[in-house]
Design a protein around this nucleic acid. Structure first.
Lengths: 342, 342
DNA sequence: GGCGGGTAGGAGAACGTTATCAGAGTTCGG
DNA sequence: CCGAACTCTGATAACGTTCTCCTACCCGCC
């Protein structure tokens, strides 16, 4: 790979002159510029961004740590981030932490050593020490989708509680009284928040939450599949369930389908995350929609503002209000005794 | 951010000694190592990977260029790549080219300037010059999911033709004679290959392909939604359609649902890409399954072998055989005249 | 003719690490 | 007891840019 030296030599000028001609700063005569550009082209010269980062102290690279890029929600978030920062010349370094604090810590160290200019992270909930260290070293951080208790960074969140509350209240308005939740892990921010939203809605409506109506999954498809069975076959089984994320919803719907449970007659279903495929289900799925792409794009924008120093104030929190998309899977409960069929 | 100099100073040794103690090379006395480690810890020292890359000539970073990370298929591929290379200490730089040769060229330039050690790309089909230039400069490249005509790199592909052929032949076996295809853009490798598979299967079965039975979409949901209508309302409408990717399948199914077309009685449907949600549809979707994650993981593995020089031979091509997952959306055609309903 | 300002171009330091080399001290076998 | 081998250490040269100096020239003007 040719260096600036090679270009300068071929053009018959000094390295400094070549740098000026290519970099477009300082004084350069038309003749010199011409010679240098010609030489650069002839040698297929591509400036070394590593060396540039060395002196400039900036890498034009941002770290992005999410739990799993294979989850369509995070894939959208990542895409949003990238679109937001692309125009400003930043590239992104993607890391999947799998909700594993150890893996997250390793990645945190990696992006720090690679001297990323900023970081967008969906923190798993481990100790915040490493994150705080990075922050203290002057690297701006934006938390997305989740936030750690006392880590004062910009954050872009969805109002999980409100979203779940809207969903549960809708079910209640439809006449449901026995409502269960397939929740996420309590150790995750979103897992907790969504469960809280459910509990609050039930409490406010004066409805009891029976034993077994709260099943804690791990936000993956398999856990939805396995746990949904626990809502069936009981004496007082719920007439409706709320499922706390997209992947578990797929698993749960598969479980219900295999068990021959009719939706919404025997079991109404509302999910969190409105996916592309929600409208093509039978019945179409009622779901709480959160704007993954915009979460990412906003996080990217906040980070850019920090990097450009166009904002230097206190940490900001942007909260997106989710929207309940009512379709048909949430229909009113059967009058007849539950468990009639099956 | 403290440098090695700071650590050395604090430990009371030379930079060279500190480097050896931390880097674990050369000779270091136990006492020195102890002092240096203590100083590094006290200063919260994180070695500068940029400076390291400078001398080592390697960045421990791989470029990954796909068309769209928000497409679950590519999201899996990306995830597979990352998992494969994580253990070997490589980070990945993610780029979404949106099938746009211009955008792809920009990203290609970016990863080149950033001196990535290797590249995994799902090429959009633009001119291969930039890619070839990168290759000539010694950067190993692996093409994934698609391949450019004469670019001699390792490649990891799905046997698209065979997959589509299996799907179409299955439809034929079920008694369908009038089969349409909602294909992808001809300028994309996968678009062409899948169309070829369909045409070959029809030709081999001696079946005609009527006007309007081949609709060329752009692999996005909206185009599936818009184009599926063209298969309806004609005199000789197909009794079955094959849809060439996951996103268009969603759009098409939505279109069919809104048009009140019963699947598979009035229109059998088979899609390309077996998604998580395929089994929960009514009827469950028959689809050609390709292992996105494994495509990515394999691409990552091939790249690692090139980087470690554990393989230096001629370009290899790994072809995954897709699997037809038969469910219910492909059922036999109606006996009655088409267009009876609607 | 001297001088200031604009233009051009070169020398060389700096960024933070790794790696090479030389020098000094220690151990050990013959 | 001497050289050879081994151990430890620090000085210093890279890596490829950017950027600050410094010198030199040309022009116009007093």
């Amino acid at each position: 790979m040719p260096t600036l030296r090679d270009v300068a030599r071929r053009a018959g000028v000094s390295v400094a002159a070549a740098a000026r001609a290519l970099g477009g700063y300082g004084y350069t005569s038309a003749a010199t510029r011409e010679k240098v550009l010609r030489a650069a082209h002839a040698l297929d010269y591509h400036p070394n961004a590593i060396a540039r980062s060395m002196i400039k102290g900036r890498t034009q690279t941002l770290g992005v740590i999410v739990s799993d890029n294979a989850n369509p929600f995070f894939a959208s978030v990542v895409r949003g981030i990238e679109d937001a920062v692309l125009g400003k010349g930043y590239a992104i370094m993607l890391c999947n932490a799998d909700e594993d604090p150890a893996k997250e810590a390793i990645y945190l160290q990696t992006v720090r050593q690679k001297r990323v200019d900023g970081l967008v992270i969906s923190p798993s909930g481990g100790p915040a020490a490493a994150l705080r260290g990075l922050m203290d070293s002057g690297t701006p951080i934006v938390q997305v989708d989740r936030r750690l208790p006392r880590l004062a960074t910009d954050a872009v969140l969805t109002d999980n509680r409100a979203g779940v509350r809207a969903a549960v209240e809708h079910l209640i308005r439809l006449g449901h009284r026995r409502i269960g939740i397939l929740s996420g892990p309590r150790r995750l921010y979103t897992g907790r928040e969504r469960l809280e939203g459910y509990l609050a809605a039930m409490r406010d409506a004066g409805l009891p939450v029976a034993d077994g109506w709260v099943q804690e999954g791990n936000f993956k498809e398999a856990s939805g599949y396995e746990l949904v069975g626990r809502f069936l076959g009981r004496g007082r089984r719920p007439t409706a369930i709320f499922i706390a994320n997209n992947l578990m919803t797929i698993g749960a719907l598969l479980g219900l389908k295999e068990a021959g449970v009719r939706i919404p007659e025997e079991m109404a279903v509302v999910g969190f995350d409105d996916m592309d495929w929600a409208p093509i289900l039978t019945p179409p799925l009622t779901a709480v929609a959160q704007p993954g792409y915009h979460l990412g794009a906003t996080a990217g924008r906040l980070l850019l503002e920090r990097l450009a120093q166009s904002y230097r104030g206190k940490p900001r929190t942007v909260v997106f209000q989710p929207r309940l998309v009512v379709r048909e899977s949430c229909g009113a409960p059967l009058r007849q005794a539950p468990g009639a069929r099956r």
